[in-house]
Amino acid sequence: MFAGTPEFAAVALEALVAAGHHVSLVLTQPDRPSGRGLKPQPSAVKARALAAGLPVAQPRSLRLAGRYPDEAAAARAQLEAARPDAMVVAAYGLILPAWVLALPRLGCLNIHASLLPRWRGAAPIHRAIEAGDTETGITIMQMDEGLDTGPMLLREAVAIAPDDRTGTLHDRLAALGARLLLDALPRWAEGRLPAQAQPPEGVTYAAKVDKAEAVVDWAAPAAVIERRLRAFDPAPGASTTLGGEVLKLWAARVEAGAAPPAAPGTVLSATDDGLRVACGEGVLCLTEVQRAGGRRGPVRALLQARPLAAGDRLGA
């Protein structure tokens, strides 16, 4: 049985099917409104499951005493009928209650996009880049009732490049997660993969990214802002304001040397090469931006449509 929702999970589901594993049921989040028309759209996992002819369930909750007890009860009947040997979970988005964890004969495996115990929680890729980590990785973990606290079965590290964004790192980790899962499953089923408890030291939590976090605080150091631009690409996208207009910020470089005295958010110079902005510490040179309703592109496109000069302010 498989439980997951976004593209990260869909890559693993596709690998399971391609490897010949029998997936008796796929759990994924309900369809969500998306796009300009806000029409309900299936998750990446649902789309991949239906293309493979797999049965899909989309309960809003699995808690029998929660807000949607009828949906949870119906899901329980489906899960019990599926009689899974194992359950694979990857970025599902719903908490699995004890009855779900106890259902598979072998238990539940989770593909987690960090080197546990660092970055337990919902947004490990974003937070690793935001924090300036130089490496992250995949942990295949046996699930328990805690938040990413279960014993580890396999771990493999991946370097984080200085220009990595959440999108680029996500794709590498998704492919690695699928590969490690296929390695782990048969060894785990045969009892040849010993579980190792997570160490108590080094625990950090990767909270879900809130859109409000993506609004740039120019009082922060330039290096911190640059990491946030990469961490929030492709979503939710870092932003600031320019004369009341929202401006998305996609790429920048930190300039070496001391910054001239100027209030944070002050434009120091505006050329086709970049928009140099004073920060709380240092200077950030913006190189790729996006106006409201436009496309992301080089700063020169912004300057052609809206000239800027030294002394103008961002975020004011």
Results as ranks from 00 to 15, higher is better:
residue 154 L to R: 15
residue 141 M to K: 05
residue 193 L to F: 04
residue 178 A to C: 11
residue 193 L to W: 06
residue 147 L to I: 15
residue 159 A to H: 14
residue 156 E to D: 09
residue 187 R to V: 12
residue 161 A to Q: 13
residue 164 D to A: 05
residue 198 Q to M: 09
residue 195 A to R: 14
residue 186 P to I: 00
residue 130 E to H: 15
residue 182 L to F: 09
residue 198 Q to I: 10
residue 177 G to W: 02
residue 197 A to H: 00
residue 162 P to H: 12
residue 157 A to P: 01
residue 145 E to T: 14
residue 145 E to M: 15
residue 176 L to T: 00
residue 191 G to Q: 11
residue 200 P to F: 08
residue 197 A to T: 04
residue 192 R to I: 01
residue 200 P to D: 01
residue 186 P to Q: 10
residue 143 M to Q: 05
residue 191 G to E: 03
residue 161 A to K: 15
residue 127 R to C: 00
residue 175 A to S: 14
residue 139 T to F: 01
residue 193 L to P: 01
residue 144 D to L: 15
residue 135 E to R: 15
residue 164 D to C: 10
residue 198 Q to G: 04
residue 184 A to M: 10
residue 134 T to Q: 11
residue 153 L to D: 05
residue 149 T to G: 12
residue 142 Q to D: 05
residue 172 R to L: 06
residue 128 A to S: 15
residue 161 A to P: 13
residue 126 H to I: 03
residue 150 G to K: 08
residue 162 P to E: 11
residue 169 L to V: 09
residue 185 L to N: 02
residue 183 D to L: 08
residue 190 E to Y: 08
residue 170 H to M: 14
residue 180 L to S: 02
residue 157 A to E: 12
residue 157 A to V: 11
residue 196 Q to I: 07
residue 154 L to D: 02
residue 179 R to G: 04
residue 136 T to H: 01
residue 141 M to I: 13
residue 147 L to Y: 12
residue 199 P to N: 05
residue 167 G to M: 13
residue 192 R to L: 13
residue 140 I to F: 12
residue 202 G to T: 11
residue 159 A to M: 14
residue 136 T to W: 01
residue 124 P to F: 05
residue 127 R to W: 09
residue 176 L to F: 09
residue 160 I to T: 02
residue 165 R to I: 08
residue 149 T to Q: 06
residue 175 A to K: 12
residue 134 T to L: 08
residue 135 E to H: 14
residue 169 L to C: 10
residue 192 R to Y: 04
residue 158 V to E: 14
residue 204 T to N: 08
residue 127 R to T: 05
residue 198 Q to D: 07
residue 200 P to N: 12
residue 196 Q to P: 04
residue 185 L to S: 00
residue 169 L to Q: 07
residue 146 G to L: 10
residue 131 A to R: 12
residue 177 G to L: 08
residue 142 Q to A: 13
residue 130 E to Y: 08
residue 191 G to N: 08
residue 129 I to V: 09
residue 139 T to A: 06
residue 153 L to Q: 03
residue 172 R to F: 01
residue 127 R to M: 07
residue 186 P to D: 00
residue 190 E to Q: 14
residue 126 H to C: 06
residue 182 L to R: 01
residue 141 M to Y: 09
residue 149 T to H: 12
residue 129 I to C: 03
residue 188 W to L: 10
residue 155 R to G: 04
residue 170 H to T: 13
residue 171 D to G: 14
residue 145 E to S: 12
residue 167 G to F: 12
residue 151 P to S: 12
residue 153 L to V: 11
residue 180 L to E: 01
residue 184 A to W: 10
residue 161 A to E: 08
residue 167 G to A: 15
residue 151 P to H: 07
residue 161 A to W: 13
residue 163 D to E: 15
residue 197 A to G: 08
residue 175 A to C: 11
residue 175 A to W: 04
residue 174 A to I: 06
residue 157 A to Y: 14
residue 133 D to F: 04
residue 194 P to H: 07
residue 137 G to A: 02
residue 197 A to F: 11
residue 129 I to R: 01
residue 193 L to E: 00
residue 165 R to F: 13
residue 149 T to V: 06
residue 200 P to G: 09
residue 200 P to E: 03
residue 185 L to W: 02
residue 187 R to I: 00
